[in-house]
């Protein structure tokens, strides 16, 4: 699935013109990106959380040569899928967030 297919879904399900749908989809991802770039997390209930994490500088190794290298402090983006999404992917009929982690 690409952005164009998401636009298509909005066109079909909501009835916006493709131009309007495309504009909105662009805006949505643009806002999420800007928010994360500011270091703020984005929490989408039923989908998951995007969180910016600070990584401290550490010594690493080039796995090919074994040579020691310094990895500088950096910021990375992590995605934690919601329990609802994880349950849906595993065929839950009622993917409520309350259903335990050890569900069969």
């Amino acid at each position: 699935m690409t952005k164009a297919e998401i636009v298509e879904q909005i066109y079909e399900r909501v009835g916006f013109s493709k131009k309007e749908a495309a504009e909105l989809v662009e805006k949505v991802f643009e806002i999420i990106k800007q928010t994360l770039a500011e270091g703020e997390k984005v929490k989408i209930s039923g989908f998951g959380n995007f969180v910016v994490r600070e990584k401290n500088a550490r010594k690493g190794r080039n796995p090919q040569t074994g040579e020691e290298i310094l990895l500088e402090a950096r910021r990375v983006l992590t995605f934690k899928p919601s329990l609802v999404l994880k349950n849906i992917l595993n065929g839950a009929e009622h993917p409520g967030a309350e259903s335990g982690r050890s569900a069969p």
Binding site: K33, V76, F79, L89
Partner: peptide
């Protein structure tokens, strides 16, 4: 049991935006 798990891989542009940002991120500590 075996299960299906979603994974996200950050794109190059967003990865660079996040790393070069000035805001306050939650610390890994």
């Amino acid at each position: 049991s075996a299960k299906r798990t979603p994974f996200f891989k950050v794109g190059k542009e967003l990865k660079e935006m996040v790393d070069s940002s000035e805001g306050t991120a939650s610390s890994s500590d």
